[in-house]
């Protein structure tokens, strides 16, 4: 492919919303309402550090350590903090455990509240109108679209997240994983399995 080396008369204009965000940032930092260092730190955290691997570590610990599991179910915020994962805004975390009787699934019908500290930024579908509207109304149908078919006897419980309470699903530990250590277990825990729209992968 020939390289087109024409002159750019001026810098590439960012998209319209990018300019609007830049405008707000300039105004707010100039007024001292936002600290640029704090802004950078938040960006760094959410773009690079936080993600589903943290939630997976929590789940793997709960699968391996019955005492930890009990603490997690009793006070998830504190139990998650034990792994040196901390929320930013003091969101109250609640862990909901899947059992053969109950499958848990999480949604935010209002906007997109999500357990950021352990899962990072939510996927697009979590923020879509379709998921937000249908998860409560027809959870089994939504699960089927994610490729999850539950036994008839297992009921589905849908948890609606809010600004104050964020839910983390603790999926059931897959069969055949008795010999695995925490690190190996964590690799089986998918993001979707912690939202309740997926199941952990089986052992390799």
């Amino acid at each position: 492919m020939p390289h087109d080396d024409h002159d750019h008369p001026h810098s590439l204009l960012p998209p319209e919303p990018a300019l609007r965000v830049k405008a707000l940032e300039t105004i707010l930092t100039a007024k001292g309402l936002v600290d640029p260092a704090a802004l950078d730190e938040i960006l760094d955290t959410y773009e690079r550090k936080v993600g589903p691997h943290l939630g997976a570590a929590v789940v793997a610990r709960a699968w391996s350590d019955p005492d930890y599991r009990a603490r997690l179910l009793a006070d998830a915020t504190a139990a998650i903090a034990e792994l040196e994962i901390s929320g930013r805004q003091g969101e109250h975390m609640v862990a909901v455990e899947n059992t053969p009787e109950t499958h848990n699934m999480v949604v935010c019908t209002l906007c997109s509240c999500y357990p950021w500290p352990v899962l990072g930024i939510p996927p697009g579908w979590y923020k879509s109108d379709a998921y937000r509207a249908r998860a409560v109304r027809e959870p089994r149908k939504v699960l089927a679209e994610f490729g999850v078919t539950l036994p008839d006897g297992q009921k589905v419980r849908v948890w609606d997240s809010t600004a104050e309470v964020r839910y983390l699903v603790i999926p059931m530990r897959p069969a055949g994983t008795e010999g695995l250590d925490e690190a190996a277990l964590a690799r089986l825990v998918t993001r979707d399995s912690m939202i309740g729209t997926g199941l952990p992968t089986g052992p390799a």
């Binding site: 309402l33 600290d35 938040i42 993600g51 805004q89 996927p123």
Partner: peptide
Amino acid sequence: APSRFDEPWQAQLFALTVALSEA
């Protein structure tokens, strides 16, 4: 695949909002 932000301004916007709330 786990998605974070599609475009840089979305990340800036997110961070700005969180920073305002934290402040």
